[in-house]
């Protein structure tokens, strides 16, 4: 009913279908961004299979697996928060969004531990320890820092977007009848999860 009122009184034009199409089109550009990096990974790994394997063994697969679980769980809470707002459960939706933010923060804290351990071992882009290694390992770590770093930036952006959506939900501008913005934020967040699903085995469980 509120939808009808919106259109007759305020002449608010809204097209949820178009919003979702727009979001998916944006996600395709993200696919190209990361896709290019995955292709670079594939080529360098093909050229240096042994060195990639050696370098990959150095990464902490436990921290990687833990972050996979954290990110998958945050995807669940995000999906549930959308289901909750569509059922008009405002407080539950807000709680689930905040939970998503906490999990995302946990992911970043975990990641910063992992990176700082690597840094303390002298392994960071351009370091002497790293440059003393073979070119395959330098490439591996270069891709590792670029790809997980770019992914971490996406996590930060995702957190900002979800945080704004939480504020909208509290204010009530995102509600059971109008929640396509929260859905779009969810799509972005699941994309971040999708990319990690591939980053994890390719870097941490080098095979």
């Amino acid at each position: 009913m509120s939808q009808v009122n919106e259109q007759t009184i305020g002449h608010v034009h809204r097209d949820d279908e178009a919003t979702r199409i727009g979001m998916w089109l944006f996600l395709f550009t993200e696919l190209l961004l990361f896709g290019g990096l995955f292709i670079a990974y594939a080529v360098y790994r093909y050229l240096h299979p042994h060195e990639f394997m050696m370098a990959g063994k150095e990464l902490n697969s436990f921290l990687g697996a833990l972050n996979t679980v954290i990110l998958l769980t945050s995807s669940l809470t995000m999906a549930l928060s959308i289901a909750a707002i569509q059922r008009n459960k405002k407080n539950l939706s807000i709680f689930l969004q905040v939970l998503t933010l906490i999990l995302a923060l946990g992911f970043l804290i975990n990641k910063s531990f992992e990176w700082s351990i690597k840094f303390s071992h002298g392994i960071y882009p351009g370091s002497e320890t790293l440059l003393a290694k073979g070119s395959g390992e330098i490439l591996f770590y270069g891709l590792y820092y670029t790809m997980t770093g770019l992914h971490a930036i996406h996590v930060v952006i995702g957190m900002i977007i979800i945080g704004v959506m939480t504020l909208f939900t509290i204010k009530g501008t995102i509600n059971s009848g109008n929640n396509v913005r929260l859905e779009s934020a969810g799509l972005y967040w699941h994309l971040v999860d999708l990319i990690w699903i591939f980053l994890f085995p390719l870097f941490y469980l080098i095979l």
Partner: peptide
């Protein structure tokens, strides 16, 4: 009709099942 078409969300349980399945698959990968 496009605008007023409700976008139905699936039940909570399907999300939880998928999440459990994803965790199992992560375990299998490791």
């Amino acid at each position: 009709s496009e605008q007023t078409k409700k976008h139905h969300s699936p039940s909570y349980s399907i999300y939880i099942f998928v999440w459990l399945f994803l965790l199992v698959l992560t375990g299998v990968t490791v």
